[in-house]
């Protein structure tokens, strides 16, 4: 038994170390690439100075525009997806349980329809939006991004709602005279905090990483700006990619740890009681 266990430990250590190396090498290379002048191999921080030194040039303007659009769209997608999904899911759970399978199906559908397929059908929809309803501003793409985020937001909210006693909470609040908005914002939202936080982070990650829709519909977001900049200045593109990828990893790891700590606290409290 002991022999089996130690063999298992070695197997685990070797495999996981190899995996870590395999996943970190490209990130390290990205860092290296961003500070190395391509032809001479000389190390210089020009790309980072250009990014954070406060200078102005066309590439940076494009990048600022793309980043600005992506951030605005991320905020819009967060508001729309939560505003749409949270009340619907609460309502369906409390009053229309028969619809829950339908809502789940619709929310998970975007996982099975490739984005490149969806964008072919979105092109005429956005033609109408940009000519008849709104205008051709990039930020209206946020409406389509909500669809891409739907599966992640649904899963986060679903596990959050599973963990609380929705019926008791809302009926108690109602019988104390709370209106439905009060129930939603002052009773349910505080209880769903970690589910909401994780759906916000997922939405952020999806929107900041989105390329297909923006590229195919000829809009400027962070990723299409990066794509363009890379054609003329690979170092800046590498530096920005590193910041965004690293930022996303740190964001999601932190989120996961926060959730884990809270769980542990809840468990230990339950253990004492």
């Amino acid at each position: 038994m002991g022999r089996v266990r130690s063999r298992g430990t070695w197997f685990r250590r070797i495999v996981l170390s190899l995996a870590v190396v395999y996943f970190l090498v490209p990130l390290v290379s990205l860092a290296d690439f961003s500070v190395r002048f391509p032809l001479t191999g000389k190390v210089d921080g020009a790309a980072w100075v250009a990014l954070f030194g406060g200078g102005q040039n066309d590439k940076l303007n494009l990048l600022t525009e793309g980043l600005g659009n992506s951030l605005v769209m991320a905020a819009m997608a967060v508001v729309i997806s939560l505003g749409l999904l949270l009340p619907t899911m609460v309502l369906v759970r409390l009053r229309l349980p028969r619809l829950s399978k339908v809502v789940e199906f619709v929310c998970l559908l975007p996982l099975t329809i490739p984005a490149v397929v969806l964008v072919v059908g979105l092109a005429p929809v956005y033609l109408v939006i940009s000519t008849k309803v709104l205008d051709s501003n990039t930020i209206w793409l946020a409406f389509a991004y909500v669809i891409l985020c739907l599966p992640y937001v649904y899963r986060a909210l679903d596990s959050g709602l599973r963990a609380i006693d929705l019926r008791t909470l809302s009926e108690t609040a109602r019988s104390f005279g709370a209106s439905w908005p009060t129930v939603l914002f002052r009773v349910l939202v505080p209880n769903l905090r970690s589910a909401l936080v994780s759906s916000v982070f997922m939405t952020l990650a999806v929107v900041l990483g989105e390329f297909t829709f923006a590229r195919m519909l000829a809009r400027t977001n962070l990723q299409t700006a990066l794509f363009e900049i890379n054609l003329s200045d690979g170092q800046i593109a590498a530096a920005v990619s590193l910041v965004v990828l690293g930022g996303t990893i740190v964001l999601l790891v932190t989120l996961d740890l926060v959730v884990a700590l809270r769980e542990r606290r809840v468990h230990s409290r339950a253990g004492i009681a």
Binding site: P26, A205, L226, A238
Partner: peptide
């Protein structure tokens, strides 16, 4: 797994 895309390609070009 989910958020690579363009940036992932850059990372490989850098590698």
């Amino acid at each position: 797994a989910q958020f690579g895309g363009v940036m992932l390609s850059f990372a490989f070009i850098a590698t």
